[in-house]
Design a protein around this nucleic acid. Structure first.
Lengths: 216, 216
DNA sequence: GCAAAAGTGTTAGCTTTACACCCATGG
DNA sequence: CCATGGGTGTAAAGCTAACACTTTTGC
């Protein structure tokens, strides 16, 4: 812990935040990337990121940065890992904390702003080579996301208030990138006792599936 | 990610590293704490910690800090979490990255140095109230340690080169704070296929237990 | 009415847990 | 020789994984 009496020896450093924003669309997991319009790494794709703000926590800072680059606003962030290799930025020493977030793309229209010339959702298997050490950050963020999802089932805002078990299963399969047996999935989920049936059925879809919601 | 063209808006901040050093001694898990000899929180116990160094990664920095406060040198560090609440330090904004390490106390004699008036190993259930938000850091570090240990079995330097299964089990039980069945433990461990029998038996202990070592 | 999706139970395999006796060694 | 700890196997329970047919609905 920093101590006031040794502040003369204090070394201050730029802290940045990067965020792997995952979204679920057309039944597959996607990642939001931005293209840099400036050097270094001009015209390269990378994770949206920027500098920590003076009066904000890192979680608040990353949301501010995200809004400033893409227009995305106020999403729940989870920490992934801190990266501090001395040469990870070619120009200046920066320490970065990486976050991930899980959002519904249609709730968050994106616009390229600031140093970003383009913002685009990439299906998870078509991610290009990224600038800086962001390939590593993405790999770590994805592993953390899957790990967290395996334990609890935090779906964030990915589901509408009322949803069918099929929708839930598609989400799971999309994120985990592996299929699961329908009956076993239903059993497992219902045993968790976190959902409650609404009694309503979803219209406009064959089979007449029941709608569920998350128990309060 | 930080960009050179926006460096005018860069906010630099002190980054500190704190470390929960766990040790195993007299068959129980202990935590190394230091007592501050200066304000704020003079005479309070807390985790050893200090400022990130200019040319070092955070992992290297925490080892430097640790050496400077306690004499402990070059131990493997694992990241726990980053803490960035704006008021977590009463004097100045600091962002802290917390680590944990797992060492063998007898390999690392400790000496109080710098702002530390005393260094002591506390059994995990007798930890006093700590300064700053270190109660939280300790709770998080312990949870991370257990989690990591459950998955892989990283024992760091806790075991001698050759050890008996009983020693391994005591270690496990001590860290996890729960007993396990001896036969089931042996089965599980040997199935992992990470150990190999040396053919030697340990002398000076009843029963004549076989010595194992970690497979290369 | 037919194609597509929803709903539903049972069984086999596997994993995990519980449990007791004999043997080797140190003192 | 005796007390302490090391070594070993099996059975029950719980969990996980595999699998097929009937019902509902949209088109």
């Amino acid at each position: 812990m920093f101590t006031s009496t040794v502040s003369s020896s204090s070394y201050e450093c730029t802290i940045t935040v990067d965020c792997a924003i995952f979204g679920f669309q057309e039944n597959e997991l996607k990642l939001l990337l931005v293209k840099r319009s400036i050097e270094p790494f001009k015209d390269n794709w990378l994770l949206p990121g920027g500098i920590m703000s003076e009066g904000l926590t890192l979680e608040e800072s990353v949301n501010k940065v995200l809004f400033g680059l893409t227009g995305i606003n106020g999403v729940h962030q989870e920490q992934v890992k801190c990266y501090s290799a001395v040469n990870r930025h070619p120009v200046k020493r920066v320490v970065t904390l990486c976050f991930y977030a899980l959002i519904k793309p249609e709730n968050h229209p994106v616009i390229a702003k600031n140093y970003v010339s383009e913002v685009r959702w990439f299906p998870i298997n078509t991610i290009p080579k990224l600038a800086f050490d962001h390939d590593q950050l993405v790999a770590d963020a994805l592993a953390t996301l899957k790990e967290n999802l395996k334990q609890n089932l935090i779906f964030g805002e990915l589901l509408p208030e009322k949803f069918t078990l099929k929708e839930l299963q598609d989400l799971h399969e999309g994120i985990m990138e592996e299929p699961v047996d329908r009956r076993n999935f239903r059993k497992r989920i219902l045993q968790m006792n976190m959902l409650e049936a609404t009694g309503e059925i979803k219209k406009g879809v064959k089979g007449g599936p029941e709608l569920y919601k998350i128990k309060k």
